[in-house]
Computed example of a mutant assay.
Amino acid sequence: MSLPQPVPPSWKDFGKSSNDLLQKEYFFNGASLEVKTQTASNVAFKVAGTKDSKSDVINGDIEGKWSDKAHGLTVTQAWTTSNVLRNTIELENQIAKGLKLDLATSLAPEKGAKTAVINSVYKQSGFHTRASLDLFKGPTFTADTVLGRDGFLIGAEAAYNVTEGKISRYATAVGFNAPQYSVAVHGLNNLKVFTASYYQRINADVEAGAKAVYDPKSTLGGVGLEVGTKVYLDRSAFIKAKINNAGVIALGYTQGLRPGVKAQFGLAIDTQKLNDPNPVGPSHKVGVNFVFDS
């Protein structure tokens, strides 16, 4: 008798290890601050703000999240500095085990713009599927499914425009997940763009990854390549580095200052424009991020 299969990753997390290694924790577009706290009544608050180094524009938002774990209910409300109100209501494992439903809405009163999306997620052993209906855009129905067995993964996504009565977008992916490494190949944009990613945990202190993208509309001859690594210095600090075939080198450093306090620094250097007189842009960028989590 075969063993129960673990729940595979969702479509958006297909190839997540490589994407996180190459994209997350690089802060070089300005200064940002994030403050998190939670009350005794199980309400979590988050305040975040960013100052863009190029435009000097400051963007921020304040978010409150209330959870009733006993009944699988979560309510999230957020208000941004651009005067956009966001609300999300989630219900998980109540109608059926493994089923999560949510309604996400947004409203910009000044512009009169509004969105409403109904989402559903259902996951079981070896199976993970999602579906969403955008009520005001299209309306558009989007669905994706990932199947997994013995580490092998296969997934597909499609978007259907209800008004026009046709499929507006489709994609597919295959991959393999192992305890120490993972690989994934995607066919995106109606199979016009292809990506291949690889991730490996070399040992307890070193991770490495790479990603290749083939896009006929790319300015780099249609092919983009990026490789990176992450090295843990100790339990509270690590360094990340990556380089792409456009000659841009990026560095990231994260340091835990004390429990709940973290400082992150980033630097991006365009090696083809080392003589740029402006050291912080547009060719070269530097940034910092602070996180306070009580």
Score class of each variant (00 low, 15 high):
residue 263 A to T: 11
residue 75 V to C: 02
residue 156 A to R: 14
residue 193 V to H: 09
residue 73 L to T: 08
residue 188 L to R: 13
residue 126 G to A: 01
residue 280 V to H: 13
residue 103 L to W: 15
residue 34 E to D: 15
residue 206 V to E: 10
residue 19 N to Q: 14
residue 102 D to L: 02
residue 249 I to T: 12
residue 176 F to Q: 05
residue 138 G to C: 05
residue 261 V to L: 06
residue 121 V to I: 15
residue 242 K to S: 03
residue 152 F to A: 13
residue 155 G to I: 01
residue 69 K to A: 10
residue 147 L to N: 04
residue 256 G to W: 11
residue 283 S to K: 11
residue 1 M to Q: 15
residue 280 V to A: 14
residue 64 G to K: 07
residue 105 T to N: 13
residue 36 K to M: 01
residue 265 F to N: 00
residue 2 S to L: 09
residue 186 H to T: 02
residue 87 N to M: 09
residue 181 Y to E: 04
residue 137 K to L: 04
residue 108 A to G: 03
residue 167 I to R: 10
residue 117 V to G: 08
residue 180 Q to I: 13
residue 290 F to Y: 12
residue 189 N to E: 11
residue 290 F to N: 03
residue 254 T to F: 10
residue 166 K to S: 13
residue 16 K to H: 12
residue 289 N to W: 09
residue 245 N to F: 08
residue 19 N to W: 12
residue 250 A to H: 09
residue 279 P to G: 07
residue 23 Q to A: 08
residue 149 R to K: 15
residue 54 K to M: 08
residue 109 P to I: 01
residue 121 V to M: 14
residue 24 K to H: 15
residue 92 E to M: 15
residue 55 S to L: 05
residue 186 H to K: 12
residue 178 A to T: 04
residue 142 T to A: 12
residue 116 A to K: 02
residue 152 F to Q: 11
residue 186 H to M: 04
residue 10 S to P: 12
residue 187 G to H: 03
residue 248 V to Q: 06
residue 153 L to H: 00
residue 286 V to F: 11
residue 43 V to K: 08
residue 200 Q to D: 07
residue 212 A to K: 02
residue 189 N to A: 07
residue 230 K to F: 05
residue 57 V to G: 01
residue 265 F to L: 06
residue 224 G to Y: 06
residue 59 N to G: 03
residue 260 G to S: 03
residue 285 K to W: 07
residue 46 K to C: 09
residue 59 N to V: 04
residue 263 A to Q: 11
residue 212 A to I: 09
residue 175 G to C: 05
residue 121 V to T: 15
residue 161 N to S: 14
residue 203 N to I: 13
residue 250 A to L: 09
residue 194 F to Y: 13
residue 262 K to P: 05
residue 52 D to H: 14
residue 48 A to D: 07
residue 74 T to C: 06
residue 121 V to K: 14
residue 83 N to E: 08
residue 191 L to G: 12
residue 22 L to N: 04
residue 183 V to E: 11
residue 29 N to A: 05
residue 241 A to V: 09
residue 174 V to A: 00
residue 11 W to M: 00
residue 259 P to T: 03
residue 12 K to S: 15
residue 151 G to A: 02
residue 81 T to S: 02
residue 218 S to Y: 15
residue 267 L to T: 09
residue 78 A to V: 02
residue 38 Q to H: 14
